[in-house]
Design a protein around this nucleic acid. Sequence first.
DNA 1: TCAATATTTCGATATTTCTAGATATATGGA
DNA 2: TCCATATATCTAGAAATATCGAAATATTGA
Lengths: 116, 116
Amino acid sequence: MDSSTAITALSSLAQSTRLDVFRLLVKHEPIGLPAGEIAQTVGVPQTTLSSHLSILAHAGMVNSTRDGRSMIYRADLECFRALTLFLFKDCCGGRSEICAPVIAELTSCCAKGAPP
Amino acid sequence: MDSSTAITALSSLAQSTRLDVFRLLVKHEPIGLPAGEIAQTVGVPQTTLSSHLSILAHAGMVNSTRDGRSMIYRADLECFRALTLFLFKDCCGGRSEICAPVIAELTSCCAKGAPP
DNA sequence: TCAATATTTCGATATTTCTAGATATATGGA
DNA sequence: TCCATATATCTAGAAATATCGAAATATTGA
């Protein structure tokens, strides 16, 4: 990921409706949700949500597939991972003391079942 | 960190000059840089930079201390860490398989000297 | 106190983003 | 084919953001 891609990704998340949508979709991984249900859940008109979804999709943070008349949206965790790594790379200039605490917290937070 | 704080932090990074500034300051941890030198390095007028620095400071991503006539800016890695953890918390709903790959990559990327 | 230096605040303008209604497109079923 | 459903695109006004020059503020040293 380059700087311009990261800015697009950060911008796409830096808005309350879109952050809500992204978090909602992360919670519904790996099944996803249809656009209409997302609009209903986050409480915005359908057209407004559609433009937000298109911004998230353009930024690569979500994907969509058609299911009949519905569009099923899913969070793109691979892109999310790339963004996180990009942000971390800034602090990895040979000085592991900077990011070691973050890794330690991440590990204790959610990697209970992860490989060592 | 709550959602509104995260949006402020994400917004502060989602702009090219400010992302450049933040990365520059991360590279200069823990010494920091005076505002004038930051402006010169990223190539924007001093007043423009000052408003960007104030946005980053308000978001908590940077701190400043006075040194004579200069203001020394530093990246706030603690805030950066909190933001990262907030983003990760979204994917930690008991499903470690989602974030385990990120942790693995982070570990191999920059935690060579970190405790296990 | 005065001049020089470093930075911030103010203000005006240009650009971008957000929102949502009207309309268009795509799909499935009668 | 025609209609209902689901979503996307178009459009425009409102709001927020970016930029930067002029002026103000804070600090140092003579």
